[in-house]
Amino acid sequence: MKAVAPAAVVFVCAGLAPLVVHDAFLLDSLVLILIWGSAAAAWNVAGGYAGQISLGHSAFFGIGAYAAGLVVTRWELSPWLGLAVGALVAMAIGLVVGYLSNRLRGPYFVLATIAFSQVLLIVGSRWRGFTSGSEGIPVPFRPGFWTLGIADKRVWVWITLALAVLAYLLQLYLDRSRRGYQLVAVREDEDAALSLGVPARWLKVAAICASAALTAACGALWAQYIGFVDPFYVFSVDLSVKFALAAIIGGLGTALGPFLGAALITTVETYLRAQFGGIGTRLIGIYLIVYGCALIVMVRWVPHGLVGWIGERLRRRVTARAET
């Protein structure tokens, strides 16, 4: 699935939607889909393309959210600066994490990443002097583009769309470039890739760094959009699983997949919220049960996700037509 046309259609539609749709609820959903889609795409760079399955990616998301929140509240600077700081910090930490975990494979890597995000959760929720501890950070609304105090959801659609396109282009690069081919080879069999001259260790670290920076950017924008940073949410394992799940549902290692997966997840989530609005925490439980079951079913029966499944259907139809 390396055709660009479907993705171009999806992104152009998303870009034009605010001109047609004025319903705040729908626009809000679109913004969230684009943020979660970008985060899932960022996860996909490490998990799908490089085969570095992380369940601690919320750490990078949280770093971005905190960077944006703290830069605004503590130093009263622009959240755009916070976004840049968050991305750089996440990249630096990604470098360390990637380097240290380089030899870890399969479940060991997963365990290490979970532990890492738990460390940040504890630091974020207990370091009262710096992060305000478990109360989290309310991000003040200061009107203006530079301060990202934007009430108009249409503008948010375009901002997050830019992020989404950036994430997509990074994946497209991996689909088509030399480094992308090499990275996929590392995912398939690291030793074989090494034997063919692929600098596997370096590529894995680079993939984790890029993925971390992009995830942090998502976190920074999300914090500004929602207006609040809760350590127990932004550093949670559930959030990491959400990124992974969106990518898996959409199609691991495909450029468009994470966005499709995020669209599906966010829609289901919003639908359930609208449907069972009154039940409070139990509602979260219901869609998380759906998440869990979807995860089990997808990896077993639809390993290539929606993109793989649709691609397979199309291919069959084409060959069937060719035969008649």
Binding site: R176, S177, R178, Y181, Q182, G197, V198
Partner: peptide
């Protein structure tokens, strides 16, 4: 993958 070790051009 092997060939890309000797050339940058895909």
């Amino acid at each position: 993958v092997g060939a890309l070790t000797r050339t940058r051009d895909v």
